[in-house]
């Protein structure tokens, strides 16, 4: 499984890329491989605020709907509209074209609770 070294990770298989006080978020290669065949993505609402750990998006495969959780408290700045017409980008390019949203983080201290690549790698065995 591809687990890039320059990203942070959540227990619930989201990846987080720090861009100053903003974070770009998607789901990991491991997560997309488990879900397979992503057929629908419910994107966060632009400008809406979410609590850390709150449901912010939904990724649906043929079999199941999976909640995506906000890794930190913040406000949505961007959503990946390309996923509306091509949700399979999450399968084909989970760390690139398959990003889901950008969040302006209220308190970047909250990001310290996230895993680094080594810790995430060992958590998925």
């Amino acid at each position: 499984m591809n687990v890039p070294d320059d990203l942070l990770y959540t227990e619930s298989h989201e990846w987080v890329r720090r861009e100053g006080d903003k974070i770009r978020v998607g789901i990991t290669d491991h997560a997309q491989a488990e879900l397979t065949d992503v057929v629908y993505v419910e994107l966060p609402k632009m400008g809406a605020s979410y609590e850390a750990g709150g449901t912010i998006a939904v990724v649906e495969s043929v079999k199941a709907a999976s909640d995506i959780y906000a890794p930190a408290k913040g406000t949505v700045l961007e959503v990946n509209k390309a996923l509306e017409s091509n949700p399979a980008l999450i399968n084909t390019d989970p760390y690139g074209e398959g990003w889901i949203y950008v969040l302006k983080v209220d308190d970047t201290e909250q990001l310290k609770a996230l895993k680094d690549a080594a810790a995430y790698r060992s958590s998925i065995g």
């Binding site: 057929v39 629908y40 419910e42 939904v58 649906e60 043929v62 709907a65 509306e84």
Partner: peptide, 13 residues
């Protein structure tokens, strides 16, 4: 009753 979604929507479950 069988049905289909009209337009774009999450998959019915």
């Amino acid at each position: 009753v069988p049905f289909r979604m009209k337009g774009k929507s999450p998959p019915p479950r």
